[in-house]
Design a protein around this nucleic acid. Structure first.
Lengths: 118, 118
DNA sequence: CGGTATCCCTGCGGATACTG
DNA sequence: CAGTATCCGCAGGGATACCG
């Protein structure tokens, strides 16, 4: 019987759990679609994320090496974010999931409603 | 500026948020790797999921039409689970993510540690 | 065997206010 | 502009007990 927790605490689960939070994937595909963006640009693009959670999400992605953060010593301050190479290699897989979701969400929503009527 | 919330409450986010929970992807790839499985088999394969959460996860996947649940009128009862066709089409994308995680987790973990020393 | 039913707790993430 | 700091509510999920 095949399983998927090689060592007890599985690094794959660790990595994937990061992407499974509410905003990470959205931030990544937004950065991929628009290239380098300022903090405020990302915030405008993803309207319903709070400033706090956008900061937290970006910092986590940065510390994982998926996003690069560049601070310019200007007044007012300017901070730019872009994907790293590692972050870029993740994009196709996220796009794959998004594409699948787009293709199948009608089927899924229908099926879900059916069962709700029970 | 490209964004990703077509209608305000985006079905893509809805669908993906389901897969982003703690156990769904794990259950799906386990079922894919082993074919039809009984409840207890899944539980043995994914050791650290509670009975409650395994039930909840399977029921959600069933109501979304990704997993099929078959109950046999026997004593003691037997319940078998397998992927549906729709569920099957999702597998390659999950495998893609898992593959990426396996390839890149060393880089990620290193990067993460560097930043923690700060 | 394959579940429910309860209770409970952690921690994700929102709201708001303040700052270099 | 791009953040911290603080507080707090809620839902995801664990532990335990019981059931057809």
């Amino acid at each position: 019987m095949k399983n998927f927790h090689p060592t007890g605490n599985c690094p794959v689960r660790d990595v994937l759990s990061r992407l499974g939070d509410k905003w990470s994937m959205l931030v990544l595909i937004t950065l991929n679609a628009n290239g380098t963006m300022r903090f405020s640009d990302i915030h405008k693009t993803i309207e319903d994320v709070s400033q706090r959670m956008l900061t937290v999400t970006l910092r986590t992605l940065e510390s994982d090496g998926l996003v690069e953060r560049k601070v310019y010593a200007e007044v007012p301050p300017r901070v730019e974010y872009c994907l790293t190479d590692t972050g870029g290699t993740l994009i196709p897989h996220i796009e794959g999931l998004v594409g699948w979701a787009l293709e199948n969400m009608d089927t899924i929503l229908d099926h879900r409603q059916m069962n709700q009527q029970h």
